[in-house]
Amino acid sequence: MTAPLSFDVHRPRALTEALDLLDEYGATARVIAGGTDLLPKLRNGRLSPEHLVSLGRVGELDGIEETGDGALVIGAATRLFDVQRHPLVRKRLPALHHACSVMATVQIRNMGTVAGNLANGSPCADTSAPLLVYGATLEVARRDGHREIPVGAFHKGPGSVDLASGELIVAIRVPPVPAGSGSAYQRISARSRVDMAAAGVAGLVTLDGDGRVAEARIGLSAVSPTPTRCPEAESLLTGQVPDAPLLERAAREAAEEAKPIDDVRATAAYRRHVVFVMANRVLTTCVARASAGAGGGTP
């Protein structure tokens, strides 16, 4: 049953101040950025923190920067809408751009953040599969230290992530995509255009000078306890000419690697089937984009 909603809200103006607060209050504190996942949990009693530390005034966490090596660093408080419309994201990270365009609702995208999408720990987080194939890392800070976690190691299980009390995701670092690569993301909700994903598939394919696959990465969301890569399907592609039959075989392999469940949103059988369908479509798009030499730029 619902507990009374009672907590203190802290609105630090600097990252160090935020980290001090998180350190002080430890497990009794939760971070709030957009609040789109947190507020429902507060209201239905699944979380009852004593302190909320808001990132709303921590300006240094808001925004996207390009580093000298060409990586994009997405500040933890950057809104999904701002990620989606950023010209470099649009150009270089079309899978992430697409995820941020179609997930949830306009209202949620105007408030929510990529970091929050990941920290919520849901296996169906839309940004997780694109960030997996882009090889992103999370920069996590605490009062007296700093560490980096590959996005693939961050999710521990449904609702569970590698983030200790006192720690804060500061940014998501997306390394430069390799030359000659193309990437894409598709998701399906199956019931409405506005819905949580029943399955999501991201792909990144890099072609060598001969038109063979130098490297393939396939990321899945909503079809296993954590967002996951598909090593078998990826190795099927590596070194091969990515013709339609091969892509279809790889897509079938990816579907085999999924570990979907039955729930009220879709059956496991349906999810496995659409992983195949979407993986096939995503890989086809990735190869087309890689061949076009657009570096995966968005259409």
């Binding site: 609702t105 019931r191 409405s192 255009r193 506005v194 819905d195 949580m196 009220v264 949103r265």
Partner: peptide, 23 residues
């Protein structure tokens, strides 16, 4: 309303899907 042994399994608007404006 997905009802299993008399219990509604999708008693939220997240899981009971009325069409959205975009639909």
């Amino acid at each position: 309303l997905i009802t299993v042994e008399g219990r509604v399994r999708n008693a939220t608007f997240l899981d009971y899907r009325i069409p959205a404006a975009e639909d």
